Simulated assay, not measured.
Amino acid sequence: MTTLESIKELRNRMSASIIGQDRLVERLILVLLADGNMLLEGLPGLAKTRAIKTLAKELNCGLSRIQFTPDLLPSDITGTEIYQPELKEKFVFQEGPIFSNLILADEINRAPAKVQSALLEAMEERQVSVAGKTYKMDPLFMVMATQNPVEQEGTYPLPEAQMDRFIMHVTIDYPDDASEIKIIRLNREEQKKAPTEEQQRLEPKVIFDARKEIASIKISEAMEKYIVDIISATRYPSKYGKDLSKWLDYGGSPRASIAIDRTSRVHAWMQGRDAVTPDDIRAVVHDCLRHRLILSYEANADGVAANEVTDEVLKQVAVVA
């Protein structure tokens, strides 16, 4: 079985367990292959936690779930040094839950900024510094942070600079009626089933092999320019029409360009192509820009969302061959 076939098999197995959220499954695998982190937003009960748990169950790797609360401390995430007088080295570092492969950061906006920063440092630098010492993360590492679009009382919204570190901001909605019936039936079947032997899990080597193949995906100068033109339109919207000019205060950072480049190459590879097309870029651009665009007061007052702004950008920016 080729690497691509293994990844498709992984996606199919996850989709069988997470009904009605095919896009979430695809995005979760895409972000993992892009070696990034994902911010997931959706109402309670939409399989956010189930999705990351299913991925961990299908992969031969560890999972940590961190429930963010207002009383959480940075050391609760990173770990801390423990005094042990009987040892030669009196202080021994005890790893926190961040030292795993897949991290579910549940309701990240429930914790204060200092705690959020502890997680985001590990995401960006892939290391943790405690008491002057640096501890590296595992090569297979991904954070899926969730936040609830309702119940904003008692929350600490992520600053734009911190949100920029997520390669994608994915939103999910309710499944359709047909999928909901399947969910009910699946839940009923799962209650009946007795524990069985664990099925064969995908080894992390498959992920690393996929990343090597993705690194060789070609992206032409025309496609590079298309990415840059899209980001430029968010930074200098007055050049692209009155609507964009009144909707946008600030556009995407260079991280946005890098995110689109990385995720569009993953998307092309997952579609079996060896080069990025405009369709690959358009398939990922909304999730890469959603959390990076700072909308104006007028846009918020008119109920214009980041998705609509991105749609307008794509209308205005042409692909130059």
Rank of each mutant, 00 (worst) to 15 (best):
A118S: 14
E107Q: 10
M123I: 08
S75K: 04
D71N: 10
Q84F: 00
G62L: 13
I52A: 09
Q84R: 14
T54W: 02
P74M: 12
E125R: 12
L73S: 07
I77S: 05
L119I: 06
C61T: 15
E124S: 15
G42E: 05
T54A: 14
K88Q: 12
L104Q: 05
I52F: 04
T80S: 15
A113C: 02
R126A: 04
G79I: 11
K57T: 10
L63N: 10
A113S: 14
S64E: 04
N109T: 13
T49H: 08
E89M: 01
A105L: 13
R50G: 02
I77P: 01
I103P: 01
S117R: 03
P74S: 11
L72K: 07
V115R: 03
R126F: 02
L46E: 03
L73V: 07
G42A: 14
E89T: 13
D106G: 07
L120Y: 06
K90L: 05
E95Q: 15
V92G: 00
D71R: 08
A47S: 14
K48M: 06
L87Y: 12
P112M: 08
E125K: 13
L87I: 00
I82P: 00
I66D: 06
E125L: 12
L40D: 06
L46A: 04
L120D: 07
R126T: 05
P70T: 11
P74E: 05
E81F: 14
F91W: 14
A111H: 04
G132M: 04
F99G: 10
L72N: 04
T80N: 11
L73W: 03
E41L: 05
V130D: 04
G42I: 01
L55P: 07
T78A: 14
L72I: 10
R50E: 15
A105R: 02
A111Q: 05
I82S: 04
E58V: 01
Q67W: 04
E121K: 05
Q127I: 02
E121S: 13
E81I: 00
L43P: 01
K114A: 11
A56V: 06
A105P: 09
T78H: 07
G45E: 08
G132I: 08
E86Y: 08
I108Q: 05
K133V: 07
A131E: 15
F99P: 06
P97L: 02
G96H: 04
A122I: 09
A122E: 09
P97R: 03
I82C: 02
L59S: 03
F91Q: 05
N109I: 01
G45H: 06
T49I: 10
R126D: 03
L46Q: 07
M123V: 12
S117G: 05
A105T: 09
K57Q: 14
P70Y: 10
L102V: 11
